[in-house]
Each structure stands twice: as C-alpha cells, then as structure tokens.
Design a protein around this nucleic acid. Structure first.
Length: 513
RNA sequence: CGGGGCGUAGCGCAGUCUGGUAGCGCGUUCGGUUCGGGACCGAAAGGUCGGAGGUUCAAAUCCUCUCGCCCCGACCA
C-alpha cells in the first residue's frame, strides 16, 4: 500500500510560517518542547476548554500507531477489549479509602442532567477501577470465570492545576487494563508480564530506553498494594513515568465484593491488577529523540516514513520528474518493515510532496515533522538513474545526502530505516547512560539538582517516607523507583544519602514530569 | 486560592501616558516570474479594539463594573 494523497497527513500550507522558529534546547527547554509540538503539528491547546488539548491529525496518527502496537500485544497475551461508562456514581469512588483520598482533589463532577439536579452526582472517570470492580462482581462467581482479562481504550479526566501538551492535560487518552485472578501469585505474574510488555514496547517500538522498578509508598497508585513502573530519561535529565502496572491485591475485590468460589469450595475475594499507558507517551517520544530542528520519529511510529520531493525548473521537467516520483512511491510502498514473527505487516507509507513550493521550504516542512527519510528527485538524477536520499538524523551508517541507484532504492531504504530505528535507541540509551550518576554525598546531590538541573541519580535511601519527603522538599527531586533486578547498579548495601542510615540498595532519583 | 501580567485582523504585536480617519510584520487570496536548503514582484481580502455602562462634540485611548486567558507558588499518567 502506498499513498500519495494523504490529505489528513499533509498539513495545509497555512501552518507554514516563516519566523516560526524552534527555540533551541539550550536556550529554553520547555519552550523548545512547545515549539516542536506546534511546528510538527501534533497538537494545540484547546483554550476554550481549560487544560485540554486538541490532538491534531498528525499527532493522532502517532497515537494510533502506538495503539496498534500495544493492542496487538495485549490480544496476544489473552486480553479482550471492552468499554465501561465515562460517568461513575460518586459513591463508587468513595468505596475504597485510599482511592478516594488520592483522587478526590482532581475529580470533575456532574451534578445536573436533563435540566434537573441529580439525586447522586456522577464523577467523570479519572480511572475505572471502581466501576469495573462493580461489574466484575457481577461477572465473577466461580474459579472457572478467572482469570478475567480486559482492557479498555478510553479518555479520562483529572482536574490538573498545571498542564502541558501531552505530558499533563485535564483530559487524556489512555488504555487501562483490568484483570482479576484466583491467587495473588497469578495476579503478580500478570502485573510483571504487562510491565515487561510496556518495557519492550518502549524500547523496541518507541526506541526509548526505560528503567523498570517499583514505586515507593508515596508515589503508589491510590488503592494499590504495589505499583510497578517504567521510567524514561528525557533530554533535560528529567524522568517521565511512561507506564504503570499495579498489584491491587484484594482492595477493590473487598470494596466491590468481587468473590468467587474456589476449587475447594471456599468463597474468596479475587486478586486484581490494573495497568496503563497514555497519550503522555507522545510527549516522551518528543523529548527522547527530537532535536533543535524539530520532531524526530522512530520508523515504527512514523505516520509517514518517506517523503519524496520533486525538483524541476519547467512544466516539462515537472511532468517527467513527477512520473518518476510515482514510480518510486509505488516501489517503496511495497516495503514491509515488520520484524520476523510479527503478526501483522507494516507497510511503508510514502508521500510525494508536489505542492507549489520551493524545495528548500519542503525540506524544512518535513524535517520539523520528523519524517525519517527524505528522497529528492530531479532531472540530474533521472539522467543518472539515481535518487538522492537523506535521513532525518545522521547516523554512523548514513550521513548527509546520499545518491543511490534507483534499482537499489527499495533495499537501501528498508535497511536504512531498520538501522535508523536501532540507531535512535542506541543514541537515547547512550544519552541516558552517560548522564546517569551514582551519588553518595549530600552536597554533591544538592549541586546535581540545583535550580532546574536534573539527571538520573542512583542513591542509597533509608526507606523512610520522612527522608523521601525531605529530599523532595529540599531539591524537588523524587524517588522515581526502586529498581527491579537487572536495572541499575547491582544491589549492594550502603548508607542513605540524606540520613546516613543503612540502606539495602540504591534507588533511582530524578526530577519528574 | 494568593502574587504578577495580558485581551486591538488567522498569528505576533504597535497605538493607550497626552482622546481626533485603526496601523505594522507574518500568514491568506488572485496574477506573474521562480524552483537541488525557508523565493520575489504586483494587486486584494480581512478588525462592532474581550464585554457592559459612564464622561465627552468625539473613546482602542479617560472612569466604573464585568468576563476570559497566561506566568509564578500548594497536587499528578
């Protein structure tokens, strides 16, 4: 499948404004992020609705690719999609003590409908554990009904005080998996399995390396027994919680009376899990790979893999060049990027930019949108039977403009895209690794997190909430997670960086989005 | 909710102090010349100056009230 007329993906020239420069990262990182999102045409603040955003077609196309990849993985592990109501009876939220406490401050509540005041207000779901708990209790009665594995793609609302496009908005899109199991061990295995899926997805599809770990009590999901997470390293040294997987224990089972009769005949509460990732991932994608020239996308998530720019001086040349462009697009469109063993094909999407603009303007246009490959085709190339190929970001394997014989284009393009995907992951991992430090001295810690500074720091912590709060109060840095085996430095005892008390292992500390 | 700032053309702004024909840049439309890293020339369209009230011969400008937004401090995928 090839495409040359993707109206939705080809933003009109109205967005092309000379002077709309992208602030450099060194100059002002938050401004750079906003500029990149705007210039890549990913989203814009809704303005008329406080704290909300409009995800524009190009940005939504990236989210759809994320959805497709994850949904395939969820289905492959036995989950089924379902959909639960947006509105949740207020009394449901208050059923689980920790849950209410955590979410009460950010709830939007519907008090009137049909011109009348409601007997019981509804809250707009901030997450769906409660209403799903209610239905699980109706659906589960026997051990034969377990495990129950469902997922929902939905929007949720949390009344945020301060918002940033994709990273934190009042309404956002996500996926929330909810499962019920007969034993705690089985539930825990599910929690870990989904965390593994998130981690593998982040690294192999988003090319975004992550640290897998467990949240401290203060950062734990309201109502969970344990929260597992993946934390990603942003270019400014801050951490982004990119996905979470919760062991809910029997907390919601008890609150919503989700019971089953076991094989031995005993009546028991189910063990539940929930796990989710959101459109925040798009923000993480931006802050992982993009540069001062704009968005950079890994091929596996790029809505457009290659753009072909025709070069011509007169109508006759235009006709001949465009004809050749169509030929190239058709050939490239037959490339399947899917890895061995993938369940579905992943055809290359190609676009010919035949707008009446000068080539240079088109180069900048697509560069800002992060299209991985640019192909220039002009009269000189036609004569020589070659095409000019350039990757959005230089990699050791491919630097600057390269000329390849037309006959080799398809093979070259495929190889370059696959190498590019790997190169982005490698570059991101190197950035994270070289900027990750081990700190053992409080003064050093203060210097590391002075002002807006942040990086990934492995430090000893005495395990107390008081120390954790003190670190946060003094530096704004927080404990992102206690690493899982294989993540971070090998566990070894030491002394807490703040209190000096004994500590069994180092934890990951950074400022966070 | 406390402190600071701002509402004038699609976007960014000037004009407000000192009332007197509503302007500039970018973008948009049309025509032409251009086209291997952000083109140029010519013409044109586009604004009840956030809203309401008041002062005045006359208000974007002065006064009163009001609405909305942004930034900074207490929460979070």
């Amino acid at each position: 499948m090839f495409a040359t007329g993707f109206g939705m993906l080809a933003p009109a020239m109205t967005e092309e404004r000379k002077g709309d420069k992208i602030t450099t990262r060194a100059e002002d990182y938050p401004q750079w992020y906003q500029d990149v999102v705007r210039e890549a045409d990913l989203a814009e603040p809704a303005k008329v609705v406080k704290g909300c955003m409009v995800i524009k077609p190009y940005g939504y196309a990236i989210w759809e690719k994320i959805q497709r990849e994850l949904d395939t993985r969820f289905k492959a592990t036995g989950h089924q999609n379902a959909y639960f109501p947006l509105l949740v009876p207020q009394s449901f939220i208050t059923r689980e003590a920790q849950h209410v406490e955590g979410f009460a401050p950010e709830l939007a509540v519907v008090t009137h409908a049909g011109g009348e005041k409601l007997e019981e207000p509804y809250v707009i779901r901030p997450t769906s554990e409660t209403i799903i708990g209610h239905f699980f209790s109706k659906w589960v009665s026997s051990w034969r009904d377990l495990p129950l594995l469902v997922n929902q793609w939905a929007n949720v609302m949390r009344w945020e005080l301060r918002t940033r496009l994709f990273l934190r908005t009042t309404e956002f899109l996500w996926q929330e998996g909810h499962t019920a199991h007969a034993t705690h061990d089985e539930a825990l295995a599910e929690v870990r399995r989904m965390l593994d899926i998130y981690g593998a997805f982040a690294e192999s599809v988003m090319a975004m390396p992550v640290i897998r770990g467990i949240k401290t009590a203060s950062e734990r999901f309201a109502g969970a027994v344990e929260t597992f997470c993946i934390e990603a390293f942003m270019q400014d040294g801050k951490a982004l919680q990119a996905g979470t997987s919760h062991d809910l224990g029997q907390n919601f089972g008890k609150a919503f009376d989700v019971k089953f009769q076991s094989e031995s005949g005993a009546l028991e509460y189910v063990w539940q899990t929930s796990w989710g990732v959101s459109t925040r991932l798009v923000g993480g994608l931006v802050m992982t790979h993009s540069d001062d020239a704009g968005l950079v996308l890994p091929p596996r998530l790029a809505p457009i893999h290659a753009v072909i720019i025709p070069i011509y001086k007169n109508p006759d040349e235009r006709t001949r060049v465009l004809e050749a462009c169509e030929r190239l697009a058709k050939a490239l469109g037959d490339i399947d990027l899917a890895q061995d063993g993938a369940r579905q094909r992943d055809w290359l999407t190609v676009q010919i930019d035949d707008r009446d603009l000068r080539p240079g303007a088109k180069f900048y246009h697509w560069e800002r949108r992060g299209v991985p490959i640019r192909i220039e085709l002009g009269p000189k190339d036609l004569e020589k039977g070659q095409v000019c190929l350039k990757m959005r970001v230089d990699t050791p394997a491919a630097t600057g403009k390269q000329f390849v014989p037309e006959a080799e284009l398809v093979a070259t393009a495929r190889a370059r895209l696959l190498a590019y995907q790997d190169a982005l992951l490698l570059a991101a991992a190197e950035r994270m690794n070289t900027r990750t430090v081990q700190l053992d001295n409080w003064d050093e810690f203060l210097a590391t997190f002075a002002g807006e500074n942040s990086t990934f720091a492995w430090c000893h912590w005495d395990g107390s909430a008081a120390t954790e709060a003190a670190i946060k109060a003094e530096t704004k840095a927080t404990i992102r997670c206690v690493p899982l085996p294989g993540q971070g430095p090998a566990p070894a005892p030491g002394r807490c960086i703040k209190s000096g008390a004994p500590s069994p292992q180092r934890v990951l500390i950074a400022k966070a989005y």
